[in-house]
């Protein structure tokens, strides 16, 4: 389990030029370890900048980023080792595949870590398992796979480095519902079995409600809210204020309540909605 903390972090793009743009403004945040944290925010709120700062692709203009209590930029030459500890899957990661076979591509990260051959192979099959890549794909070219499969291979490539913290920027963007479930479900299984700290950036409130334990809301270059998923989605007004939303099902249940139906207020996932509806029906039946 790894601990990631940001202290007074600011980041300015093109500092000192007329195109200067403050992407992060004095951000203080600590990511809870051993859980899945969802990072949400309107376009341009600084989410992508934040995740790139977390694994040292960008260096903060001001402030420090602490990984297990140590400044990640203490030794700039050693930043690659930070990137092994904080794995980042960028947006549309399927475009980064390059090797001849799926196996070799997943092994690229672990090979860069200079691990033993057996260890690499072990990690490749583990990561492939979590991402739902079966053995028959191992010797295929990654370019022959479908979009969703490519995406899963790319995610496996980062998982195989066994980072203490895994960050995924929009891992399910542009996929069909089944593809989304396969990827996010795999990430959750991976998290539950390894205890890795996971941070997921997403625009889908539905996915966040189902898969995340914690939520961080970004707005205008700073942290707007942070807390348990249920606590955050219970404050729908505050979310709508910054151009975000709550899951559709939550809207539906609010509407049902306002129509005088006796259903609970805070329902965020379809599963819990089904349970709540059944419970409400039972009560009604009992009353009759």
């Amino acid at each position: 389990m790894a601990e990631l903390t940001l202290k007074d972090v600011s980041y300015i793009y093109s500092a000192g030029t007329p195109f200067e743009k403050k992407a992060l403004d004095n951000v203080n945040i600590s990511f809870k370890s051993g859980v899945i944290t969802g990072l949400i925010g309107h376009t341009g709120s600084g989410k992508s900048t934040l995740v790139q700062l977390l694994n040292g692709l960008l260096e903060p203009t001001e402030g420090t980023i602490l990984l297990d209590g140590e400044d990640i930029w203490k030794n700039p030459k050693d930043i690659t080792s930070v990137r092994f500890k904080v794995g980042l899957v960028m947006q549309y990661p399927e475009y980064q595949l390059f090797e001849e076979t799926v196996r070799k591509d997943i092994a690229y990260g672990p090979t860069n870590m200079k691990l033993e051959k057996e260890e690499i192979e072990k990690r490749v099959s583990e990561a492939a398992f979590f991402c739902g890549i079966t053995d028959e794909y191992f010797d295929k070219s990654p370019f022959d796979l479908s979009g969703g499969q490519k995406r899963r291979v790319a995610i496996a490539g980062v998982m195989a480095m066994k980072p203490g913290i895994l960050i995924l920027d929009e891992p399910a963007a542009g996929l069909d519902p089944i593809g989304r479930e396969e990827i996010l479900g795999g990430i959750r299984t991976f998290q539950r079995q390894t205890g890795t700290t996971v941070i997921i950036v997403s625009h889908s409130m539905e996915d966040m409600a189902v898969y995340c334990d914690e939520i961080v809301v970004m707005n205008k270059a700073s942290v707007y809210m942070q807390g348990k998923t249920s606590d955050i989605f219970a404050q729908s007004d505050k979310l709508i204020e910054v151009g975000l939303d709550v899951p559709q099902i939550t809207h539906l249940f609010k509407k049902m309540r306002s129509m005088g139906l006796n259903v609970p207020e805070n329902v965020f996932t379809v599963d819990s909605a089904i349970k709540a509806t059944l419970l409400a029906l039972e009560k009604r039946g009992g009353a009759r």
């Binding site: 790139q52 694994n55 692709l57 690659t80 990137r83 092994f84 794995g87 980042l88 899957v89 960028m90 990661p93 475009y95 980064q96 690229y108 990260g109 860069n112 870590m113 490539g157 980062v158 480095m161």
Partner: peptide
């Protein structure tokens, strides 16, 4: 950036 994140 993506490859750097994988240790390139």
């Amino acid at each position: 950036n993506a490859q750097k994140a994988r240790g390139a």
